[in-house]
Simulated assay, not measured.
Amino acid sequence: MSVHVVCNAAAGQQNAESVLKEYVHKYLDAWKAADRTRVAPTYHSTDPTHGAKQIGAALAREKAPLTLVVLGGDGTVHEALDGMQSVSIPSEIFLVIVPTGTANAMYHALFGTHPGGYAATDPRWRLCALQAFAASKSTQPLSLMRVTMGDTHLSCVVTSHALHAAILRDSESLRASHPGIERFKMAAEQNMVRWTEGELVLEPGTEPVQRYCPSKHTFVPVAALGDYQADQHGTLRIQGPFVYLTAMVVDRLEAAFVPAPFAGPRCEAALRRPSDMVDIVVLRPLRSPVVQKAIAQGDPMDKIHEMYAQGPLAEVFFEGMYKDGAHVSFAYDGDEDVAGEQAGMPVVEYFRAAAYAWRPAPTDPSATTTCVDGTIFHADATSVQVWEGAYVHAWC
């Protein structure tokens, strides 16, 4: 099986080339020396304009199983795999991630907040997958999403709309001055008061559309919940406005930022996302009793948006998503609004579905913004489903 190394020198802190020279060459040279029948790795550098997409397309034309070593972030992994699907996904891809990006969500989903138990200052935290490959340890099958917006793209981490998509869109202008994850927090502050209008359509698969029920600590078919009405086919249509709308096949977007705690491979088996389903995390402000009361009183909408951003949204972000996914248990409690783990109406709607469609409202131009693994698109409609027949395994 051929081994291809893709290095994105521009990713994250721009240290991929030094990591390649200091660590990756040594591991791969030793791997090759251990078995003289092994073919020497082929090295590729990403293109400043097209990233790793052209490399992926070229590799797909070989129509053979391969091992792909990626020095970069989630965007680099996405570009390489997306380039492959634009031609033809190889029968099997074995992925070795050497994280040199900004957030490195997929890597942390596989290895946790502190990979290998190493501190963030210890460079060995980047080498867990490389060590697993060199030692022929185990691989983990990955779920992929097929994202259709006219063209078809592949998503291996997240497809999002509303706040998360706006954060990724606006953070790009901050990349040069703030290459670390702080730029995402800065972009969030610019967009937290925005509400996004549109319709979310959730589709069943072999299992019905489900929502996590905090009081029961399990996923429950929406038909068994009183606040939803699916049609005769099991399709569920949800109206906005939305503040947060993110579909994920991993649990986190940063090492310690966990919007979808049940989506990743490290989750307990009883709650873990099945391979043919997508976890969709939703925040709709009109579910808030405080928001409803303010609207009934005739309070100005800009003040209501600000109140929601500073209240429930901030609590979900900083006391939930940054606290190992605790937000999935938050509930509303009358005028107290967010009241931690309660039996009331969940603050976060955590859905599980086989596919979904996002239909932006024509009256909201910003609702067309869609993020696919960090790449921003503008689409009048988006459909997402689990990618069947894409066999990607990650060394871990």
Rank of each mutant, 00 (worst) to 15 (best):
A230R: 01
E172C: 05
P221I: 01
H164W: 09
I167F: 02
L225T: 05
P221T: 02
E207M: 08
V157N: 11
T235W: 00
E207V: 04
P204T: 01
E199C: 07
Y228W: 05
T218L: 10
Q239H: 12
Y244D: 14
A166F: 09
A187C: 07
K185D: 09
V222N: 07
I238W: 11
H164Y: 08
C156M: 13
V201A: 08
P241N: 13
R183N: 06
H161R: 15
S171C: 14
G180S: 11
H233E: 10
C213W: 08
A165H: 05
S160F: 03
I167W: 00
L163M: 10
K216Y: 03
E207R: 12
T159K: 07
D170H: 10
G226C: 06
C213N: 12
V158I: 14
S215Y: 05
E189N: 06
P204W: 00
V193I: 11
L236F: 04
H161T: 07
D251V: 00
V193G: 13
F242S: 05
H217S: 15
T206K: 07
A247S: 13
G205T: 12
Y212I: 00
S177T: 14
A166Q: 14
A176H: 13
A166Y: 10
E199V: 14
R175F: 07
F184Q: 02
